[in-house]
Design a protein around this nucleic acid. Structure first.
Lengths: 345, 345
DNA sequence: CTGTTAGCGCTTTCAC
DNA sequence: GTGAAAGCGCTAACAG
């Protein structure tokens, strides 16, 4: 393995009997420099595999071309989709992405932010943890003039552009669809009240019931804490064993719906005939379960793409930064679990 | 938002009437420096929120405390598990992780490597694409003295430590289990012949048949190209419609097994009574499908942890680098799809 | 114990 | 067109 010492501008300058500054400018095709000089320098650089020392350039320019990306969980279909979109986009613009996860723990998120700030990313993409409200650690970025974009799980406490999915509308469409399928006693297993998405979805649910003049009962709304399969199972049992059981359950997320389906199957309820089930997020699992699960697609990849685009725009244009929020449309995916009337939508 | 200009060592030195080097050393509690000086400097630094300029430090030390991580696919349960382990470990050691994906396309992998090399990561963790054989782009890291660790999908063309799972043994155990369940005509839907893992698994399959004196037929071995659900479906059909159909199918991965299950269900075969099915990788979906899928757990998180540990060790100890490979044990997970005798193992 | 000095590799005025 | 020189912020060898 030939330990090739890297050559520097100085080496080029010395060998070619020019100054370092001329060499530097020649490589950038600076208009001042004679074409001939440019040619010669470039040729020499190429021949000797000159590669600028990025560390030096970054230092000089006070830029790293790295952006930070923090999500609650990495092993998560939706978030990995977002990350994928963000990385692909960043790459296209010459940026690398530093990825970290908070595990939905505030302290971990703070640590992750600090490390990223310390390692001098040029900007930050973040989907906050369930425990984040003030977000002082995120304000540190803004204080240093580094742009931040929030996505998916956001807080209005922070004045940054946000990329979200239209949770309200998604939930509304989901419930409207259930109503269209003839369900009339629709329950909702929702997320924590401190979490914005959860509230939006709950409101969409409400509005849909209201607009269609359907019965609403607070007994039919269950609040998840962990948002996992077990909770779905438990709440489904509570709902179905109650004196006034619902005939459809709209879940905050597919994982919860999975638990619901499991309970319904065990308890002998027929899905979708007796009980309709809707998830949210359209994970891979929705296609795999039996019966397949109707859900709302959140276009994670596009979310990643758009968030990264906005961030990079704001990094590159400190003067006219994009301040607008972006709300992506959702997509209703009808599968077996809610398709009682058996026709394709 | 107070635009706080960052203070530098120079500022501290000037204000405290000491030299920059003294300030620098005091902050590091250099033994040469008087306790009193250290106290004063630290106090001042703290009061004025001194933060060292990482870009300058990196430049000086020629280190970034960033490591690169390249996988074929990000939206992939196994790989995201590995990434999660690697990131958590890196964080613990003060490193950040730059993540990128190759989409199993050689050119993308080369680009990803180049960008990472250019952005001066201190080392690289990589699981190569299906199209990578020589890996010249990876050798560029080694040529610059930057350590590389390969994991999961590896090639022996590159002289780097490797962290893998014992594919041979995993496959052997899987097939042995099938045999123990009374299956005797066991087919294998395998991966490409150029891919090492695929070969290891195929050999484990062979060896298990051989050791138990079971019939082997090349008709029972199908070679996947895309390794997806559709191929599983198609090959299952081919196998079951052939003159001498198998009574069990061992699949290169859970996704393929999913297609197999789907075909078997449609064609009316009872699983596991008539036909046993084994996957590999133990994705989330294995617990979700119906019947649940027996599989081999590859301990992705541990793989990430170990690979990151090795890399960081090798970055920090250029003199005595770890050269050994690490092969993690797999775990047989028995679920419904192969559990014909209905007892727990 | 502390200061002086040199320098990492590059960019960018400012001269000529 | 080109060069000289300064400096980004920090570290470390050397000197005292």
């Amino acid at each position: 393995m030939p330990e090739k010492r890297k050559i520097t501008l100085k080496d080029i300058a010395r060998e070619l009997n020019i100054s370092v500054s001329t060499a530097s400018r020649a490589l950038k095709e600076h208009p001042d420099i004679a074409d001939e000089t440019i040619r010669i320098v470039k040729a020499y650089a190429k021949e000797h595999h000159y590669v600028p020392n990025v560390l030096a350039v970054n230092f000089r320019k006070n830029r790293t071309y790295n952006i930070g990306l923090i999500v609650p969980e990495l092993v998560h279909h939706f978030f990995s989709t977002v990350i994928s979109g963000a990385i692909d986009t960043a790459k296209k613009h010459g940026y690398n992405v530093l990825v970290s996860q908070s595990n939905d723990i505030l302290d971990d998120e703070i640590t992750a932010c600090r490390t990223m700030l310390a390692s001098s990313v040029d900007g930050l993409l973040i989907s906050i943890s369930n425990e984040t409200f003030e977000g002082e650690h995120i304000k540190e970025f803004l204080a240093e003039g580094k742009p931040v974009i929030q996505f998916d799980k956001i807080t209005d406490e922070l004045e940054t552009p946000k990329v979200t999915v239209d949770d309200f509308e998604g939930a509304y469409q989901a419930v409207k669809h259930l109503i269209g399928q003839g369900y009339s006693k629709i329950a909702h297993i929702r997320g924590r009240k401190e979490v914005k998405n959860a509230n939006e979805r709950a409101e969409g649910y409400h509005k849909a019931l209201e607009d269609h003049g359907l019965e609403y009962s607070s007994d039919w709304v269950k609040v998840c804490n962990m948002i996992n399969e077990e909770e779905g199972y438990q709440f489904a049992r509570e709902l179905m064993e109650s004196p006034n059981p619902p005939d459809a359950i709209f879940c905050i997320t597919d994982l919860v719906a999975l638990g619901v389906l499991k309970y319904l199957k065990e308890a002998g309820f027929r899905v979708p005939d007796q009980v309709g089930v809707m998830g949210f997020s359209n994970w891979k699992l929705a296609e795999i379960v039996n019966p397949t699960l109707s859900s709302i697609d959140q276009h994670g990849y596009e979310m990643g793409v758009n968030a990264a685009k906005m961030l990079i725009h704001n990094i590159n244009n400190p003067e006219k930064r994009e301040e607008e929020n972006l709300m992506l449309k959702t997509n209703l995916i009808i599968r077996e679990s809610s398709n009682r009337k058996k026709f394709q939508n």
